[in-house]
Amino acid sequence: MNDTRRIIRQGVTDALPVFLPAVPFALVLGIAILESGILPALGWSSSALIYGGASQLTLLTLLGDGAAPGAAVTAALIVNARHLMYSAAMAPTFQQQPAWFRWAGSYFLIDQVFALTMLRINDEPQRFRAYYLGVGLTFWLLWLLFTAVALVAGPLLPQHWGLGFAVPVMFLGLLVIGIDRWPKAVAAAVAALVTWLAASLPHRSGLLLGALAGVLTGLLLERRR
């Protein structure tokens, strides 16, 4: 039990620095909500109901611009389609987990939670669960808190400190930390290149194409070995 506590605390500690880059993002979302003309409390409720910054921003900005709701929802869901891949990647690990945790844990599976807990998928199930909950709940609470604060503080802060750049830095760092053999580095490089080449596709769906190319590269390299 004591061990579980320690691991939960470890999850919380690991989540805090990784959350920092999300703060400017929360501010951007807060400003977008205020500019969309949607009731601020309703806009904020998307932090709990959707719980995904990029898709919240897409949906609320498009709705605010007067887009058809169906189109706005579709765009937001395409932005979020990468979660399908997180779900697939986590499926083997969640096989060893109880049903309640598969249903509840899925809700928390955002980019950062995926990136952090991916490094722990070989832990024993109980430890993985404790770590995942520590990371997941921390992110969730902080996101709700900071998107609320952003509604008040967002308009008061200077637009550009370049803090937003911490987001790609954080993901690149977690990506590199997770690379344990060279085919993964090659797959990541191919994914990056294809994403860049496919950048002009609508709704930034080049991301999905790039990710797919990376996975196929990995499969080919593994088959050769």
Binding site: A115, G178, K184, A188, V215, G218
Partner: peptide, 25 residues
């Protein structure tokens, strides 16, 4: 299972690039 192992690095690499480019590429 092997394919799933490659999802993490691939999506994250794609995500980083997406953040660094404008929609026009």
């Amino acid at each position: 299972r092997t394919a799933m192992e490659y999802i993490g690095p691939s999506v994250m690499a794609a995500l980083v690039v997406t953040m660094l480019i404008s929609p026009e590429g």
